[in-house]
Simulated assay, not measured.
Amino acid sequence: MNSTKKGMDDKKFNFYCSILIFLISILLFSILTSRMKNIITANSGREIGFYGAVLDYGIPALPTAFTEKDKVEKHQSFKDNMLNILGIKSKTSLSIIGKEISYLGNVSGEKDDCRLTMRDPENVFDKFSLNEDQVFEQENKVENNQPVKNCPVYDPKLKKKLSNNPEVLIYHTHTCESYKPNVISSKDKTQNVCAVGEEIKKELESKYGIAVLHDTTVHDVAAYNKSYERSRPTVEKYLKQYKDFKIIIDLHRDSIENKDAVTFNVNNEKVAKFAFVMTRKNPHFNKNMEVVNKMASISNKLYPGLYKGLFCYNYGKKFYNQDLNNNMVLMEVGSHVNTIEESKGTGKYVARIIAEYINGKN
């Protein structure tokens, strides 16, 4: 009798547990649905697009209320809204995955001849570090995609006698990051980021008297995931030899697929935009950011729209070596969809900005 009663009690207990779990599931679903609705209403104003997409993904045979336009947009809006529910800007987020891990290919779903929209202009799932606990992205306050004309590239007032000691150090943690028409990664230093660094060096030395040490050591072939470990001794070697530099640039390129987001028209010339990637937890962050903010301000004044924006990690990989010096920055020039000529074209504008920073009164 007791065992029978115990069995009935167990069944009741299991039944009530099932009811409780069911009610909790309904509550969670309601909260999630409410969250979805708020996001859709706030961000797109098209509830039918999202809910229709949910039905269409889950039950493809079920007729939905899509217009022809909806059918074209539904997949993108579904992805965007699902990522928004998680607190992620889809364009920013998906770009990050493709950025430093370019061999993953096009993760944005866009065509190969476009690139991962680096932040729409607002997207960057940065390739540098996928396991960051927190990332922060700040678009440039000067939003300008219109052509800029009559912007002097060279200012003779900034020229001085060339120093014997280098004031600028340029190196490349991901030395093989390349541009079109070349492959996405190449040791050819006339087609990869080394060519951009060399252009900046040539401009600074010949036009502004600023000596540049440009190191083109390949750090990313033997072990890509240990690129920062391999480039760190390179920086340390030069810091030991020269003690300090006015600015140290780890020069990269992005992997954004949307070319419009990283290309700028200045003086009737298409050039690649540039951006900074920094680490907030490194002990020199505040000093590093003084360099970034001054260069961004100069760029916005001279060539509004050329500077794309700032992207921050907490730690990055070994702080991207920014913990080694107050004047360390990681700069990205263009993306793999930019041509080498567009990216080298940016070199003379970046050189002018650096010259204003070092030789000017800013």
Score class of each variant (00 low, 15 high):
residue 141 K to S: 06
residue 140 N to Q: 05
residue 133 D to N: 15
residue 130 L to E: 01
residue 110 E to A: 02
residue 124 V to Y: 15
residue 127 K to S: 02
residue 122 E to F: 09
residue 120 D to Q: 09
residue 133 D to T: 15
residue 125 F to T: 06
residue 137 E to K: 07
residue 111 K to R: 09
residue 129 S to L: 03
residue 141 K to A: 06
residue 119 R to G: 06
residue 112 D to V: 15
residue 115 R to N: 04
residue 108 S to T: 15
residue 111 K to A: 14
residue 116 L to G: 08
residue 129 S to F: 01
residue 118 M to H: 07
residue 117 T to P: 12
residue 118 M to R: 14
residue 121 P to A: 03
residue 133 D to M: 13
residue 127 K to Q: 04
residue 132 E to I: 01
residue 134 Q to P: 01
residue 134 Q to Y: 11
residue 119 R to E: 05
residue 127 K to C: 00
residue 137 E to S: 10
residue 131 N to W: 00
residue 126 D to E: 14
residue 108 S to K: 06
residue 110 E to L: 04
residue 125 F to C: 09
residue 123 N to T: 14
residue 121 P to M: 07
residue 137 E to L: 11
residue 124 V to A: 10
residue 128 F to C: 00
residue 116 L to I: 02
residue 109 G to L: 07
residue 126 D to K: 10
residue 115 R to D: 00
residue 134 Q to D: 05
residue 120 D to M: 10
residue 121 P to G: 05
residue 123 N to H: 14
residue 110 E to D: 05
residue 140 N to M: 08
residue 114 C to H: 07
residue 107 V to A: 10
residue 115 R to C: 05
residue 107 V to H: 10
residue 109 G to V: 08
residue 133 D to Q: 13
residue 141 K to W: 04
residue 135 V to L: 02
residue 133 D to F: 02
residue 108 S to M: 04
residue 130 L to A: 02
residue 136 F to D: 03
residue 135 V to P: 01
residue 110 E to I: 06
residue 114 C to I: 09
residue 114 C to E: 07
residue 117 T to E: 05
residue 117 T to I: 14
residue 111 K to E: 09
residue 132 E to M: 12
residue 108 S to Q: 05
residue 132 E to G: 11
residue 134 Q to N: 12
residue 121 P to I: 07
